[in-house]
Every structure is written in C-alpha cells, then in structure tokens.
C-alpha cells in the first residue's frame, strides 16, 4: 500500500466499521433507502467539499463557500419571484456569478500575494452581506421545473431512491477526481500545493492555476447552492452558516493534507458520508442530541490529524530507507 493512499484506506475502513457497528444495533440502517437518503441529504455538502478539496490540495483554503451557498438560495428565490426567468436560466446565471466570484478571489490572492485565509474570509462577509441585501426573510422557491427536479430519482434495488441531486453530487466527485488525478491541470494543482516556488521555476503558471482553483471552488459552491435550494425549497440568508468548516472537516477526514499537495478526491466523499452516517445514527437512536454529531466529528478530526502526523513520520523513515536502497543501486550501476 503506498503511503499516499493509506489515509484514504483508513477513511474507508472507518466508514465500513462505523456502518457495521450501526448495523448491529439497527439492522434497518443497511438498506438502499438509508443510503439514498444519506446521499441526498449530503449532496450539497459533498459538492462543496469537493471544491474545497481542490483548494486545499493547491495549498489554499476557501472560507467563503458557506456564505456563497446561502447567497445562491436567496438569489434563486429573488430571481424566480421578481423576474420571469426560467429556473434553468437562473441557475446558469448564478453559476456564472459564483464562478466569477471565485476567480476574482483567486486573482486577488495571486496578484496581491495575500493569504487565502484573509481573502476568502472577506469573500465570506461579502457573500453573506449580499444575501442579506437581497432579502432578509426566507424566500420560498417554487416552480414546476424545480418540482420536477425534486421528484426525479432512480429507484435502486431495495426501493432506495437515488435522487437527481445525489446523482449530481456523485457526478461532481467523479468529474473532479478525473480532473485532479488524471489531467495535466490536476498535476499543476498538486505541484502548486507541493511547493509553489519550485512549481514556478519548472514553468507552471502558478497564477493561472490559483485563479482556476478558486474559480472551480466558486463553481462548486454555486452548484451546491442550487442543490441546497432545490433540497430545501427555500432561500434564506442565514442558511448554511459554518458549512465551510464542515467541508474542511470532510476534506481532512477524507485524508487530504491541510498543507497541500497530497490527497485523494474520493476520500472527501467518504468523509462526507461518515459525517452523514453519524447524523443518521442519531436519528435512528432518537434519544441523542444532534450535537453529538459535532462531538464525534471533532474526535474524528483529532484522530485524523494524529494519524497523518504518524504517517508523515513513517514516510520520512521509509524515505531514508529507500534513499539508501537507491544509493546502493546507484553505486552498483557505477561499478558495473
């Protein structure tokens, strides 16, 4: 097992183990119905966490995404209420806006050499503020086209429903996995996250990559906003407070290093599912407060940071061994 995929393997093992334990207690939890709900309930989080994964892989962070989701809901609500635009047109407009917003943050981060933490924190305030400006009240979102999306699903064996928005989330995970782990762009993201100075000397356009990464995160946040609006049938400027932190937690639990340059996109999906599973368990139990979710996630995060620390140490030890082996073979080559 390569040390790179070990965190992912551990995440998967934890998920299976946790699911198994829950199943021992509540056999009903192992059904496609529950799984379908798990995916649907966490669709927006999954999409936004995937965008966050890319940002973190590039060595940055995006704190604006929770606010962007809230803005998206309000924007959709207001546009549908006040204009005659078709929802699909509104969605496209919104995605353009959030993508541009992300691109702009990326440009500021690169051109002004400002820390992503600060720039996206400012972005968070701006997006949340824009949502308030549009509407303070919760706006209902109703439209036949949206109802069609809400009721679209594929019936899985066992009567579970894979909804359209859950499918959209899985599709996003798959697309971004390909983009990051199989495309030249992904290699650039990893390069910038590994060491931006060196990447620049090797001819990587660090600025373009940075801007694109935040643009992608903005797009994902917008898409998550659409999904959240469809899922809740409402737009509310106070919604999804702190979602950016949930997303970061899912990324870390999914085995991506916060320092950038190392990680695996599908791990984030498992991270999201672990968080969703805890919530589902609490619902099944019925007596536990939902705040337990937070506590368990806190403990998991802690465990993962410790695990990664251990792995890094393991790997440096391993590296020394491999370095020796390589030297040895180099010497044999030289004498051959």
């Amino acid at each position: 097992m390569s040390a790179r995929l070990l965190p992912f393997a551990v995440t998967c093992a934890i998920f299976v183990l946790a699911y198994g334990l829950a199943w021992l207690q509540f056999p009903a939890i192992l059904s496609t119905r529950v799984i379908g709900n798990l995916l649907t309930d966490n669709a927006y989080l999954g999409i936004v966490a995937v965008g966050m994964t890319v940002v973190i892989l590039s060595g940055g962070i995006d704190l604006s995404v929770g606010a962007v989701i809230a803005f998206s809901g309000v924007f959709i609500g207001v546009m549908l209420r006040d204009t005659g635009l078709h929802p699909y047109a509104v969605f496209l407009l919104l995605l353009a806006i959030t993508t541009l917003f992300g691109l702009a943050m990326g440009a500021v981060i690169h051109l002004l050499e400002m820390p992503p933490f600060i720039v996206t924190l400012a972005g968070m305030f701006m997006a949340r503020g824009a949502a308030y400006v549009l509407s303070i009240d919760s706006i209902p979102i109703r439209h036949p086209a949206i109802e069609a999306i809400q009721s679209a699903y594929w019936l899985m064996p066992g009567k579970g429903r894979l909804t359209l928005i859950a499918g959209l989330m899985l599709l996003t995970v798959a697309a971004v996995t390909l983009l990051i782990h199989r495309s030249p762009f992904g290699t650039r993201v990893m390069a910038v996250g590994g060491d931006a100075r060196t990447a620049r000397l090797l001819g990587v356009d660090v600025g373009r990559t940075t801007v694109a990464v935040y643009g992608l995160s903005g797009f994902c946040a917008g898409l998550a906003g659409v999904v959240f609006a469809v899922y809740t049938s409402a737009g509310y400027s106070l919604a999804t407070v702190g979602t950016e932190l949930d997303a970061i937690a899912a990324v870390v639990i999914g085995g991506t290093l916060l320092t950038g340059g190392s990680g695996f996109v599908p791990g984030t999906l498992i991270g999201v599912l672990i968080m969703g599973l805890i919530q589902t368990y609490i619902v099944f139990d019925g007596t536990l407060s939902s705040w337990w979710t937070k506590i368990v996630i806190g403990m998991l995060l802690f465990g993962f940071v410790a695990l990664q620390k251990g792995l890094v140490q393991l790997r440096t030890g391993d590296r020394a061994a491999r370095r020796r082996a390589a030297r040895q073979s180099g010497r044999h080559r030289a004498t051959a």
Binding site: R182, G193, V204
Partner: peptide, 27 residues
Amino acid sequence: VNLLANLTVAENLMLGREPRRLGLTNR
C-alpha cells in the same frame, strides 16, 4: 534540487507537456 517531491518521477519529468488523450493525461 528543484523538482517537486510530492509528484512522481514521471510527473516531474513531463510537467508542462503531458501527452494527452481526450483532455486527460495519457499516463
């Protein structure tokens, strides 16, 4: 040494001129 330790040897060598197929890297 100015290469990227977190990438593979091949990625380091081909960075910036990866052979492509359908837009993806032809690994």
